[in-house]
């Protein structure tokens, strides 16, 4: 107990459990209410909103953002603060998969190699963090800058063959929903089970929640830092394959488009930026909600220009309301 309070006090990022204190379920419920309110309002405004096309449009919106957010959430959960460089593995894998395809690689080695090579970005990050002991936020800011520049130099033009399976993956459907949605769904389920029920998963939470206690109880912080940053990059790499499938002309500068939305999704989902708390099911709903906003705006007849404004406002309101609620319960108890 005292360890915890002391930790909280030392960091300005006071860990706050989002919605109703302890329960993840309460958090998920609140997010669901938020999401359904938006859907309901849009449907009342225009009944066409409840169509299969809208559903698919929202699902497509979720595909890349969702996978990236899972990678980011893993970093946040493990106490790595934030990974501002995830755009680098995203683009790297996207470009590599195109290049490997053009060289005639078959699907499996192509996927494995292009994604694994992206993992190097995470290892570099972890090296700076663990060995040189630089704060992750500074490290990933630096590698993000440097990596972005390198990508521009390495890949000025990566064009996806419209006949390729990559391009086809971007427009195909499996089991009635866009195929590109499944990576996100599978990752969500996998991470949820991993974090909730597996020993490595619980240790990730322990490392994030209280590195001191974790270290004292014999968990190797270094190993977990390497692992989480590596896997976050790998996950971003998978998002990169989807990115290539969606974007026949991969432009290195496009990678940064997702940086802020993915952090917003993670924060909205209730992941504490101080590490150690968060739920991947909530993240799924949070991504879904944020992906519904732009579609709903169009139905309300607003220019897409307004989209960032609403996304920002929603984030502020959600975080504030939650904090207010937490504060009240704290003062009571």
């Amino acid at each position: 107990m005292s360890i915890n309070s002391n930790e909280q006090r030392r960091s300005p990022l006071y860990p706050r459990r989002i919605f109703f204190g302890t329960g993840d379920s309460g958090n998920i419920l609140a997010l669901l209410i938020l999401w359904f309110t938006l859907i309901g309002a849009s449907a009342i405004n225009n009944s066409l909103f409840l169509s299969k096309t809208t559903f698919n449009a929202v699902v497509f919106n979720m595909c890349i953002l969702g996978v990236l957010a899972i990678g980011q959430a893993l970093i946040v959960l493990s106490g790595g603060i934030l990974d501002l460089s995830l755009a680098v593995p995203l683009i790297l894998t996207g470009c590599l998969s195109v290049i490997f395809y053009d060289r005639g690689w078959s699907t499996l080695p192509l996927l494995i190699f292009s994604v694994l090579i992206s993992g190097i970005v995470g290892l570099i990050n972890a090296f700076f963090i663990v060995v040189l002991k630089i704060n992750p936020l500074i490290v990933t800011l630096g590698t993000g800058f440097a990596g972005g520049g390198l990508l521009l130099i390495l890949f000025d033009r990566a064009m996806v063959n419209p006949e390729s399976w990559i391009a086809n993956f971007g427009i195909s459907y499996s089991l009635g929903v866009p195929s590109a949605w499944w990576p996100m769904v599978l990752f969500t389920i996998f991470m949820h089970i991993l974090i909730k029920y597996s020993r490595p998963g619980r240790r990730v939470v322990a490392v994030g929640g209280n590195p001191v206690a974790a270290k004292v109880s014999g968990i190797s912080l270094k190993r977990y830092r390497f692992a989480t940053f590596f896997f976050a990059s790998i996950i971003a790499g998978v998002a990169g394959v989807i990115f290539a499938a969606f974007t026949p002309e991969i432009r290195p500068s496009s990678g940064t488009l997702y940086t802020l939305p993915m952090i917003a999704a993670v924060v909205l989902a209730g992941f504490s930026l101080a590490g150690g708390s968060g739920n991947f099911l909530a993240l799924f709903i949070s991504v879904g909600f944020l992906s519904t906003v732009p579609t709903a705006l169009v139905f309300f007849g607003l220019e897409s220009l307004w989209e960032p404004f609403f996304q920002g406002v929603i984030l502020i309101v959600a975080v504030s309301l939650d904090a207010l609620r937490t504060k009240k319960t704290v003062t009571k108890g």
């Binding site: 990022l13 706050r16 924060v267 220009l305 307004w306 960032p308 404004f309 996304q311 904090a323 207010l324």
Partner: peptide, 23 residues
């Protein structure tokens, strides 16, 4: 006032005001 996380709040403000500036 609400004791919300500064990074989260100002990140939201960043996104919102960027949009507002364009509008």
């Amino acid at each position: 006032g609400f004791n919300a996380n500064p990074i989260a709040v100002t990140l939201g403000m960043l996104v919102a005001l960027r949009g507002l500036a364009r509008v």
